[in-house]
Write a protein that binds this DNA or RNA. Sequence first.
DNA 1: AGACGAATTGACGTGAACGTAAATGAAACG
DNA 2: CGTTTCATTTACGTTCACGTCAATTCGTCT
Lengths: 138, 138
Amino acid sequence: MTTETDKTTTEETMTIREMCDLFEVTPRTLRFYESKELIFPIREGTRRHFTRRDRARLKLILRGKRFGFSLEEIRQLLDLYDMGEGKTVQLARTYELAQQHLDEMKGQREELDRAIAELETQMEWGARELEKRRSNAA
Amino acid sequence: MTTETDKTTTEETMTIREMCDLFEVTPRTLRFYESKELIFPIREGTRRHFTRRDRARLKLILRGKRFGFSLEEIRQLLDLYDMGEGKTVQLARTYELAQQHLDEMKGQREELDRAIAELETQMEWGARELEKRRSNAA
DNA sequence: AGACGAATTGACGTGAACGTAAATGAAACG
DNA sequence: CGTTTCATTTACGTTCACGTCAATTCGTCT
């Protein structure tokens, strides 16, 4: 009977410093994210202890940021990921929200594809010009 | 002999209002971009006149923004596009810079692909749960 | 000439996402 | 027990990309 609150899944918590080193963020950032309810470190007295869940969320937060999502938007997405972990509450609304985000992301990808293609063209030009100049200089 | 300063290429300029309507930006935005040397409208007295070049640049500016590039980064990229239009000055440095940006963009695309895949998995879950709930409610 | 609308120039304000400094508290070390 | 060493809280500061408002000025219409 190892299914109570499940202590098997190495619920080793981390200090704020360990988190900062692991994810390359500042303490300020982690506290800020907590204040915005993106992560929920446990409080032992005054100190914070970051759980596996916090780590998973932070990972997603940082990825979201790399795509230009706002922290508020990321918070919405995080809720979706949580759903997968069991509860499945209020799923319909969240599902819709994610669908929206997914559409945006796909649109963004298409545009990115076009932009990359254009840039590559531009750069072939550049490379040829570069070659010309090199041989002229010789 | 129609090749002097080239008046053939419909160099019709636009007022700030026309620009705003066409690109869905505010006057403030255009003036701001000018102050940051992203565009260079002609001055007739006090009024601005936006050229074809300004329009092309603005188009790229807005696209750059959609990818989360900062205005400063965009200014660098704009210089590259200008190269293609003739001068080809200082090409080597600019080329390198663009190569960097391209790599970043490609990396971003890969990550985006993975994220989309994950989200889609998550959403199949969601859709199934939704279906369960619908039939249970009936 | 007077009035009106459109454009311009400061200059201050704003929201997001933290940075940074000061004061305080807990804790570990010699 | 005193002193570093972290961590925390409070709070003001900062950068980016404009928004907003007031005071002019310019061109135009009557």
